[in-house]
Amino acid sequence: MSHGSPGWILFLAYVTSVVGSLIGLACAQRARAAEERSHEVAWTALGAVAIGGIAIWLMHFIAMLDFTIGGSAVTYSVPLTVLSAVLSILVVYLGLSIVTLARFTVIRLICAGIVAGIGVTVMHYVGMAAVEFQGELSYNPALVAVSAGIAIAAATVAFWFTLRVESAGAMVLAGLAMGVAVTGMHYTGMAAASVRMDMSLAPSTGAGVFSVVFPVFTLSALAVGGLLWALMASVPDPIDVRGHRPAPR
């Protein structure tokens, strides 16, 4: 089994995670500045698509392009791959909503981090369950626990950033840090995996990785474009960029 080799795939996965994180942070700023509840919910949902769908799930999928098993073709179950994407967005939305749609408390932040972190961990292993080959995957429980811990810590820090980041420079630093955490969680989870080949099993019948790449990247490009358009089309007042509501008139 080969995964995690240094190179352009690791770099692309990290950059994707950073870009998704930055867009998600910007959406969270809009949610904090919104005056109407419906706008808060909408921006929180868009932030979940950016962080859960792009920074986490798309990063995972890109990193999996480097996953090879000698002697067996690797394919993917499309339903499980789609399920992993949906799970990632839903758990991040749930976590974000805990901290953006209600009064901030440290307890809420910790609960949001735990909920999203566990959800992202489940998403990772559902995504791994989508991998089909002539053999079986098994996992080192200790490294699985470490990957879950990293995911919880990363989610908690990400949600804290969504509430506290104000300046453009701080947002960039936050995005870079979130990219390291998310990518680190993925590769720790992959380090927990080991392969047992069984050539007596029927060859895998799922979708080949490159037959999945085009629709995944097309949809992701549309999502990024839509999110950027929404951000540019809704420019808040300067005071709102700092996360403060306008004073009542």
Rank of each mutant, 00 (worst) to 15 (best):
F11Y: 15
A130S: 06
G113W: 01
I56F: 15
V49I: 15
Q134A: 08
M59C: 11
R108N: 11
S167W: 13
G135I: 06
W160Q: 05
V41G: 02
L83N: 05
S200P: 01
T105V: 06
M123G: 11
T121G: 04
L83H: 05
G179R: 07
G189I: 03
M185N: 08
E166S: 09
I110E: 03
I62G: 01
F11T: 08
V165L: 11
M128T: 13
G226V: 07
A55V: 10
L109W: 05
M197H: 00
V157A: 10
G70S: 12
V91R: 03
L101V: 06
G206T: 02
G243M: 02
G135T: 04
G184S: 11
S97E: 14
M199N: 06
G71T: 00
G53Y: 13
H124L: 05
V122W: 09
A145W: 10
S5G: 08
A207V: 09
V126A: 11
S38I: 07
A191V: 00
G149W: 00
A145Y: 07
Y76A: 02
I114F: 13
S5D: 04
G20C: 11
F159K: 00
G208W: 08
T183N: 12
S194L: 00
H39S: 13
L46K: 09
E35W: 05
M232R: 12
V49L: 15
R30A: 03
L96Q: 08
H124I: 08
V92C: 14
L22G: 03
F104P: 03
S17Y: 09
G135V: 04
V182I: 15
V241A: 06
V146N: 03
C27Y: 08
G117C: 03
S17I: 15
S234V: 04
A168R: 09
I9S: 07
A168V: 11
A45D: 05
D198R: 00
P203G: 09
V213G: 03
A55R: 12
A155Q: 00
F210L: 14
L227K: 05
H39K: 13
G20R: 07
G206F: 06
D237P: 02
V144I: 08
